[in-house]
Design a binder for these strands. Structure first.
Length: 694
DNA sequence: ATACGATTTTTTTTT
DNA sequence: AAAATCGTAT
């Protein structure tokens, strides 16, 4: 319908690409979305149903029919998804996506807030705090504001921050968040508002926002400044959102307002793949979309192009144990293949050597490593596997766990950059100061209190410092070195951000790293790469913002430093694997206590989310699915005699084949009969045997 | 009093 | 692996 009308506004139609044959390259369900998604639209798309493809073609269609790329906003959930989608769209329309706004919510919020920071009383160079920063800042709040009653077990900084974060993201009060989601903190409820206030105050003083603030402040900006809202939402003629099931209330509010002028809001999601409720993602956004937008068109993509029917059967059998869901059964267009395998190993070592043997067998049969992936619930589950892979010289890339920018050496060095960019950055000061011999938490605190009084004159403070009482000569020397260094780095700063890092490395950190880390060489190499990368920026705060948001770096820097197209096996958390697919998928560690996670086993509501996670994992597989679990494994409390995961036990036996892995040669923990059908009644603790061994 | 090294505990998932 | 805790050195 709108094809003709939008063509009329198309301007120079000569550029329209006749070479995309939409009808042929898409199925009829997908084509309907690409052609008709005007106004509010909800696309319910099952796993592997070509949802990314549909979005990419929709973008191409819009551009081909005259919408300038810079009037399209494409919101995705991860940086990786954003890049993948933009490059696919670029390939389709031959580079005409330039100017398209695409990225994560946080990325887009950052971009908009840089322009309008002033309206919210931030300076435009505001600093972004990553999770580690936020936790440290909260820790310093608890030191001053926390109750000092000895012996009282008080929630840790990270826990406090989580509560506040959850409240912010779901748009509920702190009290409410504690009552409903963190009942263990009810007796401390009265303290939280005070912590929140002190935390806010510290952030303000630093001109800093944490991840949540990016969303909160963008929403506030749109709500409180109608001219801004008008301007932005007029600009974005089309707003497209991927993975809508994982958006939270703030994000739904933001998309609502950004699309408020044109009303063209296209959201795509799958309620069965909602796995981020711990971050306050709200399935209600999808389930109630048609209530919020009564005129919304609803599309369904229910044909799976990815997986063999045997794999899909297993997935469907699993997800049907969940009660809260849209009724939807995935059909596959593919021919019958191999029945999924469930393999049990005596211990994690045997599990690892089994996976490696299977990988090697496939590699020998000329399968590329990048066509296989090993998925897991939590990143520490790969320990044995990584050892085994190293032993066999198999190159791999692990996703999940510590991020590049959260590693100590990176944060240390960027600490100097942060001080130079923003001398009011309390966290950077504390971190950098404690790198020096003789300066610990106490001295760092005293120095910071002095700096705080006039941050902009920090270079001249050194003299006052000397007059501080009771400085031992060791401390005094340390303080002297700090300022000598800072003066030197301030001079390098003129030449660009990369020069600062080079100078830090040359003047101090190279030596420091050799003492502090046993893998110093690798880390120094890392930092040299970082220096190179940083030189692409002129603006320190732009560099730091991208660092905090994880933008660009992981893929580019690391990829460039390694052999670019070396074939690698992917190890990934299931969360990071969302939206991806491989021919062969291993899901390891399927034991009660690990997956489902011990914490969620105790709470019924979260168990459904955990099951959706399992669903996401198995639906990544195209040809082959191999599930494994160790019969004994390891929890912080001791050995866990595992029974296979609930998610496996509840499946009908006919959907998988069974396989027993022989002991790989590691020390045998003794054969114990696993009660596979075991009743759920005895909690996992009953199965934990404390051992003295460690 | 403070720094720092050794020991113990604890760890989901992500922007 | 990193933080919290504890004990010793400066």
């Amino acid at each position: 319908m709108d094809v003709q009308s939008s063509q009329r506004h198309a301007g120079p139609l000569s550029r329209e690409r006749a070479d995309i044959d939409y009808k042929n390259e898409l199925n009829s369900e997908q084509f309907a979305v690409v052609r008709d998604a005007e106004g509010p639209c909800l696309v319910l798309a099952g796993a592997g149903s070509g949802k990314t493809r549909t979005l990419v073609y929709r973008v191409a269609w819009l551009i081909a029919h005259g919408t300038p790329a810079d009037r399209i906003l494409l919101l995705t959930f991860t940086n990786k998804a954003a890049h993948a989608m933009l490059s696919r769209a670029a390939a389709l329309v031959k580079g005409e996506v330039k100017g398209l706004w695409g990225g994560t919510f946080h990325h887009i919020a950052n971009r908009i807030l840089r322009v309008y920071a002033g309206k919210l009383d931030f300076k435009p160079q505001f600093q972004i705090l990553d999770e580690d920063d936020a936790e440290r800042l909260m820790r310093s709040v608890l030191v001053t504001e926390g109750p000092h009653a000895a012996g009282s077990v008080f929630p840790k900084a990270d826990a406090v921050r989580r509560v506040l974060s959850f409240a912010a993201n779901s748009g509920i009060s702190i009290e409410h968040a504690i009552d409903d989601h963190y009942p263990q903190f009810i007796k401390f409820k009265n303290f939280f508002p005070e912590f929140a206030r002190a935390y806010e105050e510290k952030k303000r003083a630093m001109n800093a926002m944490d991840f949540d603030d990016l969303l909160v402040n963008l929403l506030r900006l749109l709500e409180q400044f109608p001219q801004v809202r008008e301007k932005l939402s007029s600009r974005f003629k089309y707003v497209l959102v991927d993975e809508y099931q994982d958006t939270n209330r703030l994000q739904a509010g933001i998309t609502h307002l950004l699309a408020s002028v044109h009303g063209n809001l296209l959201v795509v999601g799958d309620d069965a793949q909602s796995i981020y409720s711990f971050r306050a993602a709200d399935i209600g956004n999808i389930l109630e979309f048609t209530d919020r937008y009564p005129k919304a068109k609803v599309f369904r993509l229910e044909t799976n192009y990815r997986s063999r029917p045997e794999i899909l059967t297993l997935a469907n059998e699993s997800i049907r144990h969940n009660s809260a869901r849209y009724k939807k059964e995935l059909r596959t267009s593919r021919k019958s293949g191999i029945v999924p395998l469930l393999a049990s190993a005596p211990d994690p070592e045997a599990q690892a050597s089994y996976v490696v043997a299977q990988v090697l067998a496939r590699a020998e049969a000329h399968m590329s490593l990048h066509d296989m992936a090993v998925l897991f619930r939590a990143s520490h589950q790969t320990l044995e596997l990584e050892l085994e892979l190293a032993k066999h010289d198999i190159p791999y890339l692990k996703r999940g766990g510590l991020r590049y920018f959260e590693q100590a050496h990176i944060k240390d060095v960027l600490g100097y950059v942060r001080i130079l960019a923003n001398p009011a950055d309390e966290l950077a000061w504390r971190r950098v100061l404690q790198l020096y011999e003789g300066i610990g938490a106490q001295t760092a605190d005293r120095i910071w209190r002095l700096v705080k009084q006039s941050p902009d004159q920090y270079l001249t403070i050194a003299d006052e410092m000397k007059e501080m009482q009771g400085l031992s000569s060791r401390v005094e020397r340390g303080v002297g070195e700090v300022w000598d260094d800072l003066r030197a780095f301030a001079i390098s700063a003129v030449k660009g951000p990369g020069e600062i890092i080079t100078a830090v490395l040359a003047r101090r950190y190279r030596e420091y790293a050799k003492d502090a880390f046993d893998d110093a060489e690798e880390r120094i190499l890392d930092l040299e790469t970082l220096a190179n990368f940083a030189n692409r920026y002129q603006d320190l705060s732009a560099l730091l913002a991208d660092a905090a948001l994880g933008e660009g770096f992981r893929g580019e820097v690391k990829g460039a430093s390694m052999a670019q197209d070396e074939d690698k096996l992917i190890l990934s958390t299931i969360h990071q694997a969302k939206g991806l697919e491989w021919k062969t998928v291993f899901v390891i560690g399927l034991v009660d206590g690990h997956f489902p996670n011990a914490r969620t086993l105790e709470r019924g509501k979260e168990l459904e989310e955990e099951r959706r996670l399992f669903y996401v994992a198995v639906t990544r597989a195209q040809e082959e699915l191999i599930l494994t679990y160790p019969e004994t494994s390891y929890l912080s409390s001791g050995y866990l005699l595992g029974r296979p995961s609930l998610f496996v036990r509840e499946l009908p036996k006919k959907v998988y084949q069974r396989w027993m892995i022989e002991d790989g040669g590691g020390d045998d923990a003794g054969m114990i009969d696993i009660d596979e059908e075991g009743d759920n009644a005895d909690g996992i603790l009953g199965k934990v045997i404390k051992t003295m061994r460690r």
